[in-house]
Amino acid sequence: MDIQQCRGRILIGKPGLDGHDRGAKIIARSLRDDGFEVIYTGIRRTPEEIALTAIQEDVDVVGLSVLSGAHNELFPEVLKALHQAKGGDIPVIGGGIIPEEDIQHLKELGMYEIFTSGTPVQTILNTFREATEKYRQRKHKII
């Protein structure tokens, strides 16, 4: 067997209290089928737990899903927690039921990208790929 270079490591997290993980699981699985290693935190995680997990696992991208509408609170909290844990450089991609004006605002706060329901999975995968590649260039010197 060969040594495989994995495409990247992704953390999929669900901060907040909503238990609707259909979207998160579809994304997790699609990422796996696209060659990513995916770590899923499960539902009901605090932003701090998600951040520390991302650091310990040294992931290339963090993906967050919030469907309760609490994204304006929870996404920035994850960014902050990552920053405090010296992982402020890790790109964070968000998904959920998110109105246009919130998207602008969240991107200004440092979210890499925000997706709403109905976005084709391929579009989401492409964004994960792009963010991963950029991050890994900074992270590694590969022979």
């Binding site: 907040g16 209290l17 909503d18 605090t46 509408g69 609490a70 609170e73 929870l74 909290e77």
Partner: peptide
């Protein structure tokens, strides 16, 4: 709302951002 459904008061840390949301 979700804190009520999961048995937390509105002032619990985990309720942040979720109070009265859904």
């Amino acid at each position: 709302d979700l804190p009520t459904q999961i048995g937390y008061d509105s002032d619990h840390k985990i309720s942040r951002g979720e109070v009265g949301r859904v």
